[in-house]
Nucleic acid binder design. Structure first.
Length: 569
RNA sequence: UGUCCGAUGGUGUAAUGGUAGCACUUAUGGUUUUGGUCCAUACAGUCAAGGUUCGAGUCCUUGUCGGACAACCA
């Protein structure tokens, strides 16, 4: 009895807290923010979400869930030249698909443009901001370098009234883009480049996808993000490691803004890097624009819509994110971990079906020509509840071309002249002869006999080395199958400083096969329904192209294959 | 020749001054009507040198290596 108790207890403490959860726990224990936990997920609507965002989403929403808190969705839309509503919609779809809910808290940084403008005006009045009119080149020159301090701008001590007037007129559209900016007055000699009088407002005349042409000045990220967190009452603002050096600035603004003990706390964690793919939005956009993939949701893309189309389940992605964890170490995660996560999930869930990708005809010479029968087969050996279904069997069947060898080596457990194998859920057959095209040398047909005694479930069997998947030729459904592989052939396509990442594209990342033969139940496979094709891998009916009677399947991931791994080459 | 942040088996991640553990990978064996699954076993780690301590992966110092920072991007 006590054993059970301990076990449950152990189960409780089994999952250790990551460093962010520990911070949250400490803040809670210290009674900060009235023990309130409020996070936010803040994408910029300038591209599709990828699996790196999933890592952030799981953290932001997960922390809130685990602490009876809330998580806002906030579109960080401060740069109208890059953003679009198309992205807003896709981002919302992807978050929902992943299984998270922001309820009624859908916000936009642009909601705060008024407040932000007011705060900027306030900073000018407090002599903490000024209008700069030098060129960006001039400003860059004065900014110094990481190892040399900067020097003050000649406009740094411009009278308050003048800055106030100019800032107002900047927003009224009086000045050209690039002619004037607003800078915070902090410290040009700071060892932190971000504190050297950072630019906080710039003129942009491109209409904004939500606010139109209301505004002619737009806040920079550093001036918008922390303040938006503040306006929303965010307690923990979680972001990736590269924002670490922004934190002093984040805190500086919060300090000027706050009128109580409350201030949001920024905590940084490591961004996701995966082997054999790229994760930067810029590169993903480039792949799309240069038609190196078919779109943002190309099944080879690390985008959530791509993974979804590939056949990944939301659960598998969440489990993956859970296993890689959150640290401050700049890690490179093996994509094998992701593949493992989807195999693990689908092994439990996916119905086993039979489909032959590269068909080779077998005629069972002792099976009556006009006869056929239905054989029972198990839907999922991992899940008894999944039940059984019937499979048609007849004189002519297809097997995988690779499952026959004219002159097989000893360790080859499949079919060869004179050899016997089991047809999954059917009979043991023996190969007696084969037909070869005299011109091409290609084997076109196998002549076999079946042993009626050995029908599946009859209890009559004998040791055979292999079990093959097959489909009845007369009943088979023609299907198109799309095979996907890793997008890049190099482990770290990002890591080569002197080479273009596109040089490492895997030329075999996508193959279409159109003459596949599948068992009849697959004819009307629902889009996005997932299967294990016995002995081949996990496949999903394409959510866009698969139609009743004309199914199209994407290979999500192959099964682990210790045979070909050992015997390749 | 700056500031900040890191470093635990091949990879990722725990251990919060007290037995270096887990997952993946790899290898071997068992089970199997999927060369899948499942089960078992094995391989393998605290960046280095000092210091504090009864005791250091953990704290301190120095070094080495890696990352971030000089966009009117986020």
């Amino acid at each position: 009895m006590s054993e059970t108790g301990n076990l449950l207890e152990n189960e409780e403490v089994k999952r250790s807290l990551n460093f962010i959860e520990q911070f949250v726990k400490e803040d809670l224990a210290a009674g900060k923010n009235n023990q309130r936990i409020h996070t936010r997920f803040p994408p910029e609507p300038n591209g599709y979400l990828h699996i790196g965002h999933a890592k952030a989403i799981c953290l932001d929403f997960g922390i809130a869930e685990n602490h009876n808190g809330k998580c806002n969705l906030r579109f960080d839309d401060t740069n109208p030249t890059k953003e679009d509503v198309e992205y807003v919609d896709s981002i919302k779809d992807d978050i929902k698909w992943l299984g998270f809910d922001w309820e009624d808290r859908e916000f936009y940084t642009s909601d705060y443009f008024g407040k932000l403008y007011e705060f900027a005006t306030e900073l000018i009045k407090r002599e903490l901001a000024y209008v700069e009119e030098q060129s960006s080149e001039e400003i860059a020159k004065q900014k110094g370098t990481p190892t040399e301090p900067g020097v003050n701008s000649p406009f740094r001590d411009r009278p308050v009234e003048e800055s106030l007037d100019l800032f107002k007129r900047m927003n009224e559209g009086e000045f050209e883009e690039g002619s004037l900016i607003l800078r915070a007055k902090i410290d040009m000699k700071s060892s932190n480049m971000h504190m050297r009088d950072p630019i906080i407002y710039r003129i942009i005349k491109t209409p904004h996808h939500r606010t139109g042409d209301t505004w002619k000045v737009y806040p920079m990220y550093d001036f918008a993000h922390g303040q938006s967190d503040y306006f929303e009452g965010i307690t923990h603002s979680l972001c990736t490691l590269e924002f670490e050096v922004h934190r002093p600035l984040y805190d500086w603004f919060a300090d000027k803004l706050k009128d109580s003990d409350y201030a949001p706390r920024q905590i940084e964690f490591n961004r996701l890097n995966l082997t054999y793919t790229v994760m930067s939005k810029r590169k993903l956009l480039q792949l799309v624009q240069e038609n190196l993939v078919t779109g943002w949701d190309d099944p080879r893309m690390p985008t959530l819509s791509g993974l979804r189309r590939r056949g990944y389940t939301p659960e598998s992605i969440r489990n993956f994110v859970d296993t890689i964890g959150y640290t401050k170490y700049n890690a490179l995660n093996d994509i094998g971990l992701l593949e493992n996560a989807i195999r693990e999930d689908l092994n439990k869930k996916a119905t086993r079906v039979m489909a032959v990708l590269d068909p080779l005809k077998i005629t069972l010479t002792n099976y009556p020509e006009d006869q056929s029968e239905e054989l029972e087969t198990v839907n999922n050996p991992e899940d008894p509840e999944a039940g059984t279904r019937m499979l048609p069997f007849s004189r002519e069947i297809y097997i995988e071309r690779g499952d026959f060898m004219e002159d097989p080596p000893k360790k080859f457990f499949r079919l060869g002249p004179g050899r016997e194998v089991r047809l999954k859920s059917a009979y043991i057959i023996q190969c007696n002869d084969f037909v070869k095209d005299p011109e091409t040398g290609e084997i076109t047909e196998l002549l076999c006999t079946y042993d009626p005694e050995t029908k599946s479930g009859s209890g009559v069997t004998r040791k055979v080395k292999g079990t093959l998947h097959w489909v009845s030729a007369a009943h088979a459904v023609d299907t198109e199958v799309r095979l996907y592989d890793r997008l890049f052939s190099d482990e770290a396509p990002d890591g080569h400083k002197d080479k273009d990442f596109k040089e490492f594209l895997n030329p075999d990342s996508f193959t279409t096969i159109t003459n596949c033969k599948a068992e009849p139940v697959l004819a009307n496979a629902e889009p996005e329904s997932r299967y294990q094709f016995t002995r081949l891998g996990y496949f999903v009916a394409d959510r866009h192209d698969s139609k009743p009677g004309k199914p199209v399947f994407n290979r999500t991931v192959s099964l682990k294959d210790s045979w070909s791994k050992k015997h390749k080459k």
